[in-house]
Nucleic acid binder design. Sequence first.
RNA 1: UGUCUUGUGGUGUAACGGUAGCACAACAGAUUCUGGUCCUGUUUGUCCAGGUUCGAAUCCUGGCAAGACAACCA
Length: 561
Amino acid sequence: MNTESPVLEENRKSLNFIEQIVENDLKEGKNDGRIQTRFPPEPNGYLHIGHAKAICLDFGIAERYNGICNLRFDDTNPVKEDVEYVDSIMEDIKWLGFHWEKIYYASDYFQQLWDFALKLIKEDKAYVDEQSAEEIAKQKGTPTVPGTHSPYRDRPMEESLELFEKMNSGEIPEGKMVLRAKIDMASSNMHFRDPIIYRVIHIPHHRTGTEWKAYPMYDFAHGQSDYFEGVTHSLCTLEFEVHRPLYDWFLDQLADSDYRPRQTEFNRLNLTYTVMSKRKLLQLVQEKLVSGWDDPRMPTLTGMRRRGYTPQAIRNFIDKIGYTKYEAINDVSLLEHAVREDLNAHAIRVSGVIDPVKLILTNYPEGQIEEMEAINNPEDESMGSRKVKFSRELWIERDDFMEEAPKKYFRLTPGNEVRLKNGYIVKCTGCRKDEKGNVTEVHAEYDPMTKSGMPDSNRKVKGTIHWVSVPHSLDAEVRLYDRLFMMEDPAGEKEKDFRELLNPDSLIVKKGCKVEEYLREAKPLDSFQFQRIGYFNVDTDSTENGIVLNRTVALKDSWKK
RNA sequence: UGUCUUGUGGUGUAACGGUAGCACAACAGAUUCUGGUCCUGUUUGUCCAGGUUCGAAUCCUGGCAAGACAACCA
Protein backbone atom coordinates (compact mmCIF):
# COMPACT_ATOMS: atom_id res chain seq x y z
CA MET A 1 0.00 0.00 0.00
CA ASN A 2 1.13 3.45 -0.80
CA THR A 3 1.54 5.67 2.22
CA GLU A 4 3.37 8.46 0.49
CA SER A 5 1.63 11.62 -0.50
CA PRO A 6 2.01 11.90 -4.24
CA VAL A 7 0.38 15.31 -4.10
CA LEU A 8 2.81 16.95 -1.74
CA GLU A 9 5.70 15.91 -3.91
CA GLU A 10 3.93 16.83 -7.07
CA ASN A 11 3.33 20.51 -6.36
CA ARG A 12 2.69 23.06 -3.68
CA LYS A 13 -0.97 23.36 -4.41
CA SER A 14 -2.73 23.29 -1.08
CA LEU A 15 -4.82 20.30 -0.23
CA ASN A 16 -8.51 20.56 0.41
CA PHE A 17 -9.67 19.50 3.85
CA ILE A 18 -10.69 16.05 2.67
CA GLU A 19 -7.30 15.38 1.13
CA GLN A 20 -5.79 16.51 4.39
CA ILE A 21 -7.90 14.00 6.28
CA VAL A 22 -6.89 11.26 3.87
CA GLU A 23 -3.21 12.15 4.12
CA ASN A 24 -3.47 12.17 7.87
CA ASP A 25 -5.07 8.75 7.90
CA LEU A 26 -2.34 7.46 5.63
CA LYS A 27 0.29 8.93 7.89
CA GLU A 28 -1.27 7.27 10.91
CA GLY A 29 -1.51 3.99 9.07
CA LYS A 30 -5.28 3.76 9.40
CA ASN A 31 -6.96 0.89 7.55
CA ASP A 32 -3.52 -0.48 6.68
CA GLY A 33 -3.01 2.41 4.32
CA ARG A 34 -6.02 1.40 2.28
CA ILE A 35 -8.10 4.11 0.60
CA GLN A 36 -11.54 3.22 -0.63
CA THR A 37 -14.38 5.50 -1.63
CA ARG A 38 -17.67 5.06 -3.36
CA PHE A 39 -20.02 7.09 -5.50
CA PRO A 40 -23.53 6.21 -4.28
CA PRO A 41 -26.27 7.71 -6.48
CA GLU A 42 -29.90 6.77 -6.14
CA PRO A 43 -31.07 5.74 -9.61
CA ASN A 44 -34.03 8.10 -9.57
CA GLY A 45 -32.90 10.68 -12.11
CA TYR A 46 -30.12 11.76 -14.41
CA LEU A 47 -26.83 13.01 -13.07
CA HIS A 48 -26.30 16.76 -13.09
CA ILE A 49 -23.29 18.99 -12.69
CA GLY A 50 -23.73 18.87 -8.93
CA HIS A 51 -23.12 15.13 -9.03
CA ALA A 52 -20.01 15.79 -11.07
CA LYS A 53 -18.58 17.51 -8.03
CA ALA A 54 -19.13 14.41 -5.92
CA ILE A 55 -17.87 12.15 -8.70
CA CYS A 56 -14.65 14.12 -9.10
CA LEU A 57 -14.06 13.88 -5.37
CA ASP A 58 -14.94 10.22 -4.88
CA PHE A 59 -13.05 8.99 -7.91
CA GLY A 60 -10.39 11.68 -7.65
CA ILE A 61 -9.40 10.78 -4.08
CA ALA A 62 -9.15 7.13 -5.02
CA GLU A 63 -7.02 7.88 -8.08
CA ARG A 64 -4.75 10.29 -6.28
CA TYR A 65 -4.02 8.00 -3.37
CA ASN A 66 -3.87 4.72 -5.25
CA GLY A 67 -7.12 3.59 -3.76
CA ILE A 68 -10.28 2.32 -5.34
CA CYS A 69 -13.68 3.81 -5.91
CA ASN A 70 -16.77 1.71 -6.43
CA LEU A 71 -20.05 2.70 -7.94
CA ARG A 72 -22.95 1.82 -5.71
CA PHE A 73 -26.56 2.36 -6.54
CA ASP A 74 -28.47 3.35 -3.45
CA ASP A 75 -31.62 1.58 -4.55
CA THR A 76 -33.62 1.12 -1.39
CA ASN A 77 -36.79 2.83 -2.59
CA PRO A 78 -38.41 1.07 -5.58
CA VAL A 79 -41.07 3.77 -5.81
CA LYS A 80 -38.70 6.24 -7.43
CA GLU A 81 -36.09 4.11 -9.10
CA ASP A 82 -35.66 2.73 -12.57
CA VAL A 83 -33.09 0.92 -14.73
CA GLU A 84 -33.21 3.80 -17.21
CA TYR A 85 -31.46 5.88 -14.59
CA VAL A 86 -28.98 3.15 -13.76
CA ASP A 87 -27.85 3.05 -17.38
CA SER A 88 -27.62 6.80 -17.79
CA ILE A 89 -25.61 7.17 -14.60
CA MET A 90 -23.01 4.68 -15.77
CA GLU A 91 -22.77 6.40 -19.14
CA ASP A 92 -22.30 9.84 -17.62
CA ILE A 93 -19.58 8.70 -15.24
CA LYS A 94 -17.70 7.13 -18.13
CA TRP A 95 -18.15 10.26 -20.19
CA LEU A 96 -16.52 12.30 -17.45
CA GLY A 97 -13.60 9.92 -17.77
CA PHE A 98 -13.80 8.01 -14.49
CA HIS A 99 -13.62 4.29 -13.91
CA TRP A 100 -15.16 2.37 -11.07
CA GLU A 101 -13.58 -0.68 -9.59
CA LYS A 102 -16.87 -2.55 -9.10
CA ILE A 103 -20.55 -1.92 -9.31
CA TYR A 104 -22.60 -2.62 -6.22
CA TYR A 105 -26.22 -2.17 -5.35
CA ALA A 106 -27.60 -1.51 -1.92
CA SER A 107 -30.21 -4.09 -2.90
CA ASP A 108 -27.40 -6.67 -2.88
CA TYR A 109 -27.39 -6.27 0.89
CA PHE A 110 -31.09 -6.69 1.56
CA GLN A 111 -30.51 -10.05 3.21
CA GLN A 112 -27.61 -8.84 5.34
CA LEU A 113 -29.55 -5.78 6.39
CA TRP A 114 -32.52 -7.93 7.22
CA ASP A 115 -30.38 -10.14 9.41
CA PHE A 116 -28.94 -7.10 11.12
CA ALA A 117 -32.45 -5.81 11.78
CA LEU A 118 -33.34 -9.16 13.37
CA LYS A 119 -30.28 -8.86 15.56
CA LEU A 120 -31.38 -5.41 16.74
CA ILE A 121 -34.86 -6.67 17.54
CA LYS A 122 -33.42 -9.56 19.53
CA GLU A 123 -31.20 -7.15 21.43
CA ASP A 124 -34.25 -5.04 22.25
CA LYS A 125 -32.92 -2.22 20.10
CA ALA A 126 -35.72 -2.23 17.55
CA TYR A 127 -39.48 -2.72 17.53
CA VAL A 128 -42.37 -2.85 15.13
CA ASP A 129 -44.63 0.18 15.36
CA GLU A 130 -48.21 -0.02 14.09
CA GLN A 131 -49.06 3.66 14.28
CA SER A 132 -49.83 5.83 11.30
CA ALA A 133 -47.23 8.14 9.83
CA GLU A 134 -49.12 11.09 11.32
CA GLU A 135 -49.09 9.64 14.80
CA ILE A 136 -45.42 8.87 14.62
CA ALA A 137 -44.68 12.36 13.37
CA LYS A 138 -46.68 13.88 16.18
CA GLN A 139 -44.73 11.94 18.80
CA LYS A 140 -41.45 12.95 17.30
CA GLY A 141 -41.57 16.36 18.97
CA THR A 142 -39.68 19.28 17.49
CA PRO A 143 -36.01 20.21 17.54
CA THR A 144 -36.64 22.04 20.80
CA VAL A 145 -39.32 19.78 22.31
CA PRO A 146 -38.54 16.15 23.15
CA GLY A 147 -40.63 13.41 21.62
CA THR A 148 -42.84 10.91 23.38
CA HIS A 149 -42.74 7.14 23.37
CA SER A 150 -44.79 5.01 21.03
CA PRO A 151 -47.26 2.72 22.76
CA TYR A 152 -45.61 -0.14 20.86
CA ARG A 153 -42.12 0.72 22.06
CA ASP A 154 -42.02 -1.91 24.78
CA ARG A 155 -43.79 -4.74 23.03
CA PRO A 156 -42.15 -8.17 23.45
CA MET A 157 -39.39 -8.88 20.98
CA GLU A 158 -41.10 -12.12 19.88
CA GLU A 159 -44.05 -10.05 18.76
CA SER A 160 -41.80 -7.69 16.84
CA LEU A 161 -39.99 -10.57 15.20
CA GLU A 162 -43.25 -12.09 14.10
CA LEU A 163 -44.65 -8.82 12.77
CA PHE A 164 -41.40 -7.95 11.03
CA GLU A 165 -41.66 -11.24 9.11
CA LYS A 166 -45.19 -10.32 8.15
CA MET A 167 -44.05 -6.90 6.95
CA ASN A 168 -41.99 -8.71 4.37
CA SER A 169 -44.41 -11.48 3.46
CA GLY A 170 -46.94 -9.26 1.79
CA GLU A 171 -49.74 -9.58 4.37
CA ILE A 172 -49.14 -6.11 5.75
CA PRO A 173 -50.37 -3.24 3.60
CA GLU A 174 -48.10 -0.26 2.97
CA GLY A 175 -48.11 2.26 5.77
CA LYS A 176 -49.51 -0.05 8.43
CA MET A 177 -46.27 -1.04 10.11
CA VAL A 178 -42.67 0.06 10.34
CA LEU A 179 -39.62 -1.16 12.15
CA ARG A 180 -38.03 1.48 14.35
CA ALA A 181 -34.71 1.53 16.13
CA LYS A 182 -35.14 2.04 19.87
CA ILE A 183 -32.75 4.81 20.74
CA ASP A 184 -33.81 8.03 22.44
CA MET A 185 -37.02 9.97 21.89
CA ALA A 186 -35.57 12.91 23.79
CA SER A 187 -32.35 13.21 21.82
CA SER A 188 -31.41 16.67 20.63
CA ASN A 189 -30.64 15.01 17.32
CA MET A 190 -33.98 14.32 15.66
CA HIS A 191 -32.53 11.33 13.88
CA PHE A 192 -32.05 9.50 17.16
CA ARG A 193 -35.72 9.69 18.05
CA ASP A 194 -36.48 6.07 17.24
CA PRO A 195 -35.80 6.38 13.53
CA ILE A 196 -37.80 4.27 11.14
CA ILE A 197 -35.47 1.72 9.62
CA TYR A 198 -37.83 -0.47 7.59
CA ARG A 199 -41.07 0.25 5.80
CA VAL A 200 -43.43 -1.76 3.59
CA ILE A 201 -43.52 -1.14 -0.15
CA HIS A 202 -45.46 -3.35 -2.55
CA ILE A 203 -44.18 -1.82 -5.79
CA PRO A 204 -41.73 -4.21 -7.49
CA HIS A 205 -38.07 -3.32 -7.23
CA HIS A 206 -36.14 -2.78 -10.47
CA ARG A 207 -33.67 -5.49 -9.51
CA THR A 208 -35.14 -7.70 -6.82
CA GLY A 209 -38.68 -7.67 -8.21
CA THR A 210 -41.21 -8.82 -5.62
CA GLU A 211 -38.77 -10.76 -3.48
CA TRP A 212 -38.90 -8.15 -0.73
CA LYS A 213 -41.80 -6.17 0.66
CA ALA A 214 -39.94 -4.57 3.54
CA TYR A 215 -37.27 -2.12 2.48
CA PRO A 216 -34.55 -0.52 4.60
CA MET A 217 -34.39 3.26 4.91
CA TYR A 218 -31.35 5.26 3.84
CA ASP A 219 -29.97 5.53 7.36
CA PHE A 220 -30.19 1.80 7.82
CA ALA A 221 -28.55 1.00 4.50
CA HIS A 222 -25.88 3.51 3.68
CA GLY A 223 -23.37 3.12 6.47
CA GLN A 224 -23.81 -0.62 6.54
CA SER A 225 -23.22 -0.83 2.79
CA ASP A 226 -20.06 1.19 3.24
CA TYR A 227 -19.03 -1.25 5.94
CA PHE A 228 -19.79 -4.37 3.91
CA GLU A 229 -17.71 -3.06 1.02
CA GLY A 230 -14.76 -1.90 3.05
CA VAL A 231 -15.14 1.80 2.33
CA THR A 232 -12.67 3.89 4.30
CA HIS A 233 -13.84 7.38 3.39
CA SER A 234 -17.53 7.92 2.88
CA LEU A 235 -17.86 11.35 1.34
CA CYS A 236 -21.21 13.03 1.11
CA THR A 237 -22.80 16.45 1.10
CA LEU A 238 -23.36 18.74 4.05
CA GLU A 239 -27.01 17.91 4.61
CA PHE A 240 -26.00 14.49 5.89
CA GLU A 241 -24.00 16.01 8.71
CA VAL A 242 -26.78 15.42 11.22
CA HIS A 243 -27.04 11.82 10.06
CA ARG A 244 -23.44 11.05 10.92
CA PRO A 245 -24.03 10.20 14.61
CA LEU A 246 -26.69 7.72 13.52
CA TYR A 247 -24.40 6.37 10.80
CA ASP A 248 -21.83 5.72 13.50
CA TRP A 249 -24.40 4.34 15.95
CA PHE A 250 -25.58 1.63 13.58
CA LEU A 251 -22.01 0.70 12.73
CA ASP A 252 -21.22 0.33 16.42
CA GLN A 253 -24.11 -2.12 16.70
CA LEU A 254 -22.95 -3.99 13.62
CA ALA A 255 -19.17 -4.02 13.60
CA ASP A 256 -17.18 -6.76 15.24
CA SER A 257 -13.79 -5.18 14.60
CA ASP A 258 -12.14 -1.79 14.86
CA TYR A 259 -12.63 -1.02 11.21
CA ARG A 260 -15.13 1.74 10.52
CA PRO A 261 -15.89 3.69 7.39
CA ARG A 262 -15.69 7.39 8.16
CA GLN A 263 -18.25 9.83 6.86
CA THR A 264 -17.04 13.28 5.88
CA GLU A 265 -19.27 15.98 4.47
CA PHE A 266 -18.46 18.66 1.92
CA ASN A 267 -20.44 21.49 0.38
CA ARG A 268 -22.81 20.77 -2.42
CA LEU A 269 -22.48 22.63 -5.72
CA ASN A 270 -24.82 25.56 -6.16
CA LEU A 271 -24.79 27.62 -9.33
CA THR A 272 -26.27 31.04 -9.76
CA TYR A 273 -29.29 31.13 -12.04
CA THR A 274 -29.47 27.34 -12.05
CA VAL A 275 -32.07 24.91 -10.83
CA MET A 276 -30.27 21.87 -9.52
CA SER A 277 -33.00 20.08 -7.61
CA LYS A 278 -33.62 16.62 -9.02
CA ARG A 279 -37.28 16.93 -8.15
CA LYS A 280 -37.64 20.09 -10.20
CA LEU A 281 -35.63 18.74 -13.10
CA LEU A 282 -37.89 15.70 -13.14
CA GLN A 283 -40.87 18.05 -13.14
CA LEU A 284 -39.50 19.93 -16.16
CA VAL A 285 -39.12 16.67 -18.03
CA GLN A 286 -42.51 15.27 -17.06
CA GLU A 287 -44.35 18.48 -17.86
CA LYS A 288 -42.51 18.68 -21.16
CA LEU A 289 -41.14 22.13 -20.41
CA VAL A 290 -37.93 20.76 -21.88
CA SER A 291 -37.37 18.17 -24.58
CA GLY A 292 -35.97 15.66 -22.09
CA TRP A 293 -33.19 15.06 -19.60
CA ASP A 294 -30.74 15.84 -22.39
CA ASP A 295 -32.26 19.17 -23.35
CA PRO A 296 -29.24 21.39 -23.88
CA ARG A 297 -30.58 23.85 -21.35
CA MET A 298 -30.60 21.28 -18.57
CA PRO A 299 -27.79 21.26 -15.99
CA THR A 300 -27.64 17.49 -16.42
CA LEU A 301 -24.44 15.97 -17.67
CA THR A 302 -26.25 14.55 -20.66
CA GLY A 303 -27.72 17.98 -21.42
CA MET A 304 -24.35 19.65 -21.15
CA ARG A 305 -22.76 16.99 -23.33
CA ARG A 306 -25.37 17.56 -26.00
CA ARG A 307 -24.82 21.29 -25.75
CA GLY A 308 -21.09 20.97 -26.29
CA TYR A 309 -19.64 21.22 -22.81
CA THR A 310 -16.62 18.95 -22.66
CA PRO A 311 -15.83 16.57 -19.81
CA GLN A 312 -12.49 18.27 -19.37
CA ALA A 313 -14.12 21.67 -19.02
CA ILE A 314 -16.46 20.35 -16.37
CA ARG A 315 -13.63 18.72 -14.49
CA ASN A 316 -11.55 21.86 -14.66
CA PHE A 317 -14.47 23.84 -13.33
CA ILE A 318 -14.97 21.46 -10.42
CA ASP A 319 -11.28 21.74 -9.74
CA LYS A 320 -11.50 25.51 -9.58
CA ILE A 321 -14.37 25.70 -7.10
CA GLY A 322 -12.90 23.38 -4.48
CA TYR A 323 -14.41 21.55 -1.52
CA THR A 324 -15.20 23.20 1.79
CA LYS A 325 -17.82 23.07 4.50
CA TYR A 326 -19.18 26.47 3.61
CA GLU A 327 -22.40 26.49 1.65
CA ALA A 328 -21.32 28.45 -1.40
CA ILE A 329 -23.07 29.70 -4.48
CA ASN A 330 -20.80 29.55 -7.47
CA ASP A 331 -21.12 31.96 -10.34
CA VAL A 332 -22.05 30.24 -13.62
CA SER A 333 -19.61 32.55 -15.35
CA LEU A 334 -16.81 30.48 -13.90
CA LEU A 335 -18.27 27.37 -15.48
CA GLU A 336 -18.66 29.18 -18.78
CA HIS A 337 -15.09 30.39 -18.51
CA ALA A 338 -13.91 26.79 -18.08
CA VAL A 339 -15.90 25.77 -21.13
CA ARG A 340 -14.47 28.58 -23.27
CA GLU A 341 -10.98 27.84 -22.04
CA ASP A 342 -11.17 24.23 -23.13
CA LEU A 343 -13.01 24.88 -26.39
CA ASN A 344 -10.66 27.71 -27.32
CA ALA A 345 -7.85 25.20 -27.41
CA HIS A 346 -9.69 22.52 -29.34
CA ALA A 347 -12.51 23.96 -31.44
CA ILE A 348 -12.06 24.59 -35.15
CA ARG A 349 -12.69 28.15 -36.26
CA VAL A 350 -15.32 28.31 -38.94
CA SER A 351 -17.53 30.98 -40.40
CA GLY A 352 -21.19 31.03 -39.65
CA VAL A 353 -23.63 33.83 -40.28
CA ILE A 354 -26.61 33.83 -37.97
CA ASP A 355 -28.54 36.79 -39.35
CA PRO A 356 -27.45 36.94 -42.99
CA VAL A 357 -27.49 39.86 -45.39
CA LYS A 358 -25.87 39.86 -48.81
CA LEU A 359 -22.61 41.64 -49.46
CA ILE A 360 -21.90 42.26 -53.16
CA LEU A 361 -18.40 43.06 -54.30
CA THR A 362 -19.33 45.21 -57.26
CA ASN A 363 -15.87 45.15 -58.83
CA TYR A 364 -15.30 41.43 -58.40
CA PRO A 365 -15.64 39.49 -61.70
CA GLU A 366 -18.96 37.68 -61.96
CA GLY A 367 -18.59 33.94 -61.94
CA GLN A 368 -15.10 34.03 -60.49
CA ILE A 369 -14.39 31.70 -57.60
CA GLU A 370 -11.26 31.63 -55.47
CA GLU A 371 -10.13 29.29 -52.73
CA MET A 372 -8.94 30.90 -49.57
CA GLU A 373 -6.76 29.30 -46.97
CA ALA A 374 -8.31 29.20 -43.49
CA ILE A 375 -6.38 28.29 -40.37
CA ASN A 376 -8.35 25.78 -38.32
CA ASN A 377 -7.14 26.93 -34.96
CA PRO A 378 -4.63 29.72 -34.38
CA GLU A 379 -3.93 28.30 -30.90
CA ASP A 380 -2.86 24.96 -32.32
CA GLU A 381 -0.93 24.71 -35.57
CA SER A 382 -1.24 20.93 -35.65
CA MET A 383 -4.94 21.33 -36.40
CA GLY A 384 -3.99 22.47 -39.90
CA SER A 385 -5.99 24.50 -42.35
CA ARG A 386 -8.68 24.13 -44.97
CA LYS A 387 -9.84 25.76 -48.21
CA VAL A 388 -12.84 28.08 -48.24
CA LYS A 389 -14.53 29.25 -51.45
CA PHE A 390 -14.82 32.96 -52.13
CA SER A 391 -17.02 34.68 -54.71
CA ARG A 392 -18.69 37.94 -55.71
CA GLU A 393 -21.66 37.47 -53.41
CA LEU A 394 -21.13 36.78 -49.75
CA TRP A 395 -23.34 36.36 -46.73
CA ILE A 396 -22.34 38.59 -43.88
CA GLU A 397 -23.84 39.32 -40.48
CA ARG A 398 -26.56 41.94 -40.65
CA ASP A 399 -25.07 43.87 -37.77
CA ASP A 400 -21.69 44.00 -39.48
CA PHE A 401 -23.12 46.84 -41.56
CA MET A 402 -24.44 50.17 -40.36
CA GLU A 403 -25.48 52.93 -42.70
CA GLU A 404 -24.86 55.54 -40.07
CA ALA A 405 -22.34 54.31 -37.57
CA PRO A 406 -20.99 55.73 -34.34
CA LYS A 407 -17.30 56.62 -34.21
CA LYS A 408 -16.24 53.43 -32.43
CA TYR A 409 -17.85 51.16 -35.03
CA PHE A 410 -15.08 49.32 -36.90
CA ARG A 411 -17.12 47.35 -39.40
CA LEU A 412 -18.89 48.12 -42.67
CA THR A 413 -20.22 51.59 -43.09
CA PRO A 414 -20.11 53.66 -46.28
CA GLY A 415 -16.58 54.81 -47.00
CA ASN A 416 -15.01 52.49 -44.44
CA GLU A 417 -12.58 49.64 -45.07
CA VAL A 418 -12.74 46.26 -43.39
CA ARG A 419 -10.94 43.01 -43.86
CA LEU A 420 -12.87 39.95 -44.91
CA LYS A 421 -11.35 37.20 -42.79
CA ASN A 422 -9.01 35.10 -44.93
CA GLY A 423 -9.98 37.20 -47.96
CA TYR A 424 -9.58 40.76 -49.19
CA ILE A 425 -9.78 44.21 -47.76
CA VAL A 426 -13.00 45.78 -49.02
CA LYS A 427 -14.36 49.29 -48.99
CA CYS A 428 -18.03 49.82 -48.36
CA THR A 429 -19.77 51.86 -51.04
CA GLY A 430 -23.36 51.74 -49.91
CA CYS A 431 -26.39 49.53 -49.72
CA ARG A 432 -29.78 48.81 -51.20
CA LYS A 433 -32.98 48.90 -49.18
CA ASP A 434 -36.57 47.77 -49.62
CA GLU A 435 -39.58 50.05 -49.31
CA LYS A 436 -39.62 49.62 -45.55
CA GLY A 437 -36.07 50.77 -45.28
CA ASN A 438 -34.58 47.37 -44.47
CA VAL A 439 -31.17 46.76 -45.90
CA THR A 440 -31.38 44.07 -48.58
CA GLU A 441 -27.84 44.14 -49.83
CA VAL A 442 -24.59 45.81 -48.94
CA HIS A 443 -22.19 46.97 -51.64
CA ALA A 444 -18.43 47.13 -51.48
CA GLU A 445 -15.38 47.19 -53.70
CA TYR A 446 -12.50 44.86 -53.08
CA ASP A 447 -8.82 45.64 -53.41
CA PRO A 448 -7.27 42.83 -55.51
CA MET A 449 -3.84 43.49 -54.06
CA THR A 450 -4.88 42.72 -50.50
CA LYS A 451 -5.67 39.04 -50.66
CA SER A 452 -4.57 37.29 -47.50
CA GLY A 453 -0.95 36.33 -47.76
CA MET A 454 -0.08 38.98 -50.34
CA PRO A 455 2.28 41.84 -49.45
CA ASP A 456 -0.38 44.57 -49.57
CA SER A 457 -2.60 42.59 -47.23
CA ASN A 458 -0.62 43.80 -44.26
CA ARG A 459 -2.28 47.17 -44.48
CA LYS A 460 -3.77 48.17 -41.16
CA VAL A 461 -7.53 47.87 -41.07
CA LYS A 462 -9.49 48.23 -37.87
CA GLY A 463 -12.20 45.65 -38.39
CA THR A 464 -12.31 42.08 -39.60
CA ILE A 465 -15.60 40.40 -40.43
CA HIS A 466 -16.53 36.86 -41.33
CA TRP A 467 -18.43 35.75 -44.41
CA VAL A 468 -19.75 32.76 -46.29
CA SER A 469 -19.83 32.60 -50.10
CA VAL A 470 -23.46 32.65 -51.25
CA PRO A 471 -23.20 29.84 -53.84
CA HIS A 472 -21.09 27.78 -51.47
CA SER A 473 -23.04 28.11 -48.25
CA LEU A 474 -25.01 25.62 -46.26
CA ASP A 475 -28.31 26.37 -44.56
CA ALA A 476 -28.38 25.74 -40.86
CA GLU A 477 -30.70 26.04 -37.93
CA VAL A 478 -28.98 27.57 -34.97
CA ARG A 479 -30.27 27.26 -31.43
CA LEU A 480 -29.15 29.92 -29.06
CA TYR A 481 -29.49 28.92 -25.45
CA ASP A 482 -29.62 31.37 -22.66
CA ARG A 483 -29.73 30.69 -18.97
CA LEU A 484 -32.98 28.90 -18.50
CA PHE A 485 -33.86 27.50 -15.19
CA MET A 486 -32.59 30.37 -13.40
CA MET A 487 -33.66 33.00 -11.10
CA GLU A 488 -31.86 36.00 -9.76
CA ASP A 489 -31.85 34.66 -6.27
CA PRO A 490 -33.12 31.12 -5.92
CA ALA A 491 -32.84 31.29 -2.15
CA GLY A 492 -34.93 34.40 -1.90
CA GLU A 493 -37.64 33.06 -4.17
CA LYS A 494 -38.57 30.00 -2.17
CA GLU A 495 -42.22 30.93 -1.97
CA LYS A 496 -42.63 31.19 -5.72
CA ASP A 497 -43.23 28.29 -8.04
CA PHE A 498 -39.89 27.95 -9.75
CA ARG A 499 -41.59 27.60 -13.13
CA GLU A 500 -42.62 31.22 -12.95
CA LEU A 501 -38.96 32.13 -12.82
CA LEU A 502 -37.92 30.29 -15.96
CA ASN A 503 -36.44 32.46 -18.62
CA PRO A 504 -38.84 32.60 -21.59
CA ASP A 505 -35.96 33.44 -23.93
CA SER A 506 -33.89 30.48 -22.87
CA LEU A 507 -34.18 28.95 -26.33
CA ILE A 508 -34.09 31.06 -29.46
CA VAL A 509 -34.18 29.24 -32.77
CA LYS A 510 -32.62 30.97 -35.75
CA LYS A 511 -33.42 29.48 -39.12
CA GLY A 512 -31.84 30.32 -42.44
CA CYS A 513 -28.39 30.74 -40.97
CA LYS A 514 -25.53 30.32 -43.42
CA VAL A 515 -22.47 28.25 -42.64
CA GLU A 516 -19.45 26.94 -44.50
CA GLU A 517 -19.86 23.83 -46.60
CA TYR A 518 -17.13 22.37 -44.42
CA LEU A 519 -19.74 21.68 -41.75
CA ARG A 520 -21.44 19.18 -44.03
CA GLU A 521 -18.75 16.73 -42.92
CA ALA A 522 -19.24 17.45 -39.24
CA LYS A 523 -20.39 14.73 -36.91
CA PRO A 524 -22.82 15.18 -34.03
CA LEU A 525 -21.24 16.82 -30.98
CA ASP A 526 -18.31 18.23 -32.98
CA SER A 527 -17.43 21.65 -31.62
CA PHE A 528 -16.65 24.80 -33.59
CA GLN A 529 -15.99 28.40 -32.90
CA PHE A 530 -17.93 30.82 -35.05
CA GLN A 531 -15.76 33.84 -35.55
CA ARG A 532 -16.77 36.55 -33.10
CA ILE A 533 -20.03 34.84 -32.10
CA GLY A 534 -19.50 31.85 -29.91
CA TYR A 535 -18.84 28.17 -29.61
CA PHE A 536 -21.26 25.84 -31.32
CA ASN A 537 -21.69 22.16 -31.69
CA VAL A 538 -23.64 19.92 -34.01
CA ASP A 539 -26.83 18.72 -32.37
CA THR A 540 -27.38 15.00 -32.06
CA ASP A 541 -30.91 15.12 -33.40
CA SER A 542 -30.09 17.09 -36.55
CA THR A 543 -28.60 16.38 -39.97
CA GLU A 544 -31.80 14.98 -41.55
CA ASN A 545 -33.40 18.19 -42.69
CA GLY A 546 -30.23 20.18 -42.59
CA ILE A 547 -27.72 20.86 -39.94
CA VAL A 548 -28.74 21.97 -36.44
CA LEU A 549 -26.26 23.74 -34.23
CA ASN A 550 -26.37 24.45 -30.51
CA ARG A 551 -24.59 27.44 -29.20
CA THR A 552 -22.51 26.00 -26.41
CA VAL A 553 -21.52 29.36 -25.00
CA ALA A 554 -21.17 32.85 -26.37
CA LEU A 555 -17.81 34.46 -26.90
CA LYS A 556 -17.02 37.39 -24.70
CA ASP A 557 -18.52 40.33 -26.49
CA SER A 558 -16.69 43.37 -25.28
CA TRP A 559 -17.84 45.54 -28.19
CA LYS A 560 -21.43 45.55 -27.00
CA LYS A 561 -20.75 48.23 -24.40
C1' U B 1 -34.94 30.31 20.74
C1' G B 2 -32.46 22.80 20.96
C1' U B 3 -28.36 20.12 18.34
C1' C B 4 -24.80 20.23 14.51
C1' U B 5 -22.08 23.07 10.84
C1' U B 6 -20.15 27.54 8.70
C1' G B 7 -18.55 33.05 8.34
C1' U B 8 -11.72 35.82 4.13
C1' G B 9 -12.87 41.36 -2.00
C1' G B 10 -18.98 41.14 -6.07
C1' U B 11 -18.30 35.33 -6.42
C1' G B 12 -15.42 31.00 -5.22
C1' U B 13 -11.04 29.52 -2.88
C1' A B 14 -5.75 29.70 -0.31
C1' A B 15 -2.77 31.20 3.82
C1' C B 16 -2.55 25.63 9.52
C1' G B 17 0.80 32.03 14.88
C1' G B 18 4.94 35.50 10.73
C1' U B 19 4.20 40.20 3.86
C1' A B 20 -3.78 38.36 3.22
C1' G B 21 -2.41 35.23 -2.36
C1' C B 22 -5.00 32.87 -6.70
C1' A B 23 -9.14 32.30 -10.15
C1' C B 24 -13.73 34.24 -12.07
C1' A B 25 -16.28 38.86 -12.58
C1' A B 26 -15.67 44.28 -13.39
C1' C B 27 -12.69 48.22 -15.35
C1' A B 28 -8.32 50.10 -18.15
C1' G B 29 -4.25 49.38 -21.62
C1' A B 30 -1.13 46.72 -25.29
C1' U B 31 -1.00 43.09 -29.34
C1' U B 32 -4.16 40.82 -33.02
C1' C B 33 -6.35 38.95 -40.36
C1' U B 34 -11.92 36.98 -34.85
C1' G B 35 -14.05 43.68 -30.83
C1' G B 36 -11.93 36.15 -29.60
C1' U B 37 -7.34 34.30 -27.53
C1' C B 38 -2.63 35.73 -25.32
C1' C B 39 -0.24 39.73 -22.26
C1' U B 40 -0.12 43.97 -18.66
C1' G B 41 -2.36 46.86 -15.02
C1' U B 42 -6.43 48.78 -11.58
C1' U B 43 -10.51 48.52 -8.05
C1' U B 44 -12.62 45.76 -4.01
C1' G B 45 -11.66 41.47 1.60
C1' U B 46 -10.46 38.57 7.08
C1' C B 47 -18.74 39.22 10.61
C1' C B 48 -18.36 42.23 15.46
C1' A B 49 -16.17 43.09 20.45
C1' G B 50 -12.74 41.78 23.90
C1' G B 51 -8.43 38.67 25.32
C1' U B 52 -3.54 35.77 24.75
C1' U B 53 1.07 37.02 21.89
C1' C B 54 6.76 40.64 19.83
C1' G B 55 3.11 39.26 16.13
C1' A B 56 -3.87 36.75 15.14
C1' A B 57 -7.81 35.47 9.25
C1' U B 58 -5.55 31.60 12.28
C1' C B 59 -5.65 30.40 19.38
C1' C B 60 -9.37 31.73 23.69
C1' U B 61 -14.16 34.14 25.46
C1' G B 62 -18.67 36.48 24.31
C1' G B 63 -21.86 38.22 20.71
C1' C B 64 -24.02 38.48 15.62
C1' A B 65 -25.32 36.17 11.03
C1' A B 66 -26.22 32.04 7.68
C1' G B 67 -27.34 26.86 6.64
C1' A B 68 -28.85 21.78 7.96
C1' C B 69 -32.15 18.63 11.03
C1' A B 70 -38.87 17.53 13.04
C1' A B 71 -40.14 12.24 4.99
C1' C B 72 -42.71 5.25 5.93
C1' C B 73 -37.01 10.22 0.35
C1' A B 74 -31.84 9.72 -0.53
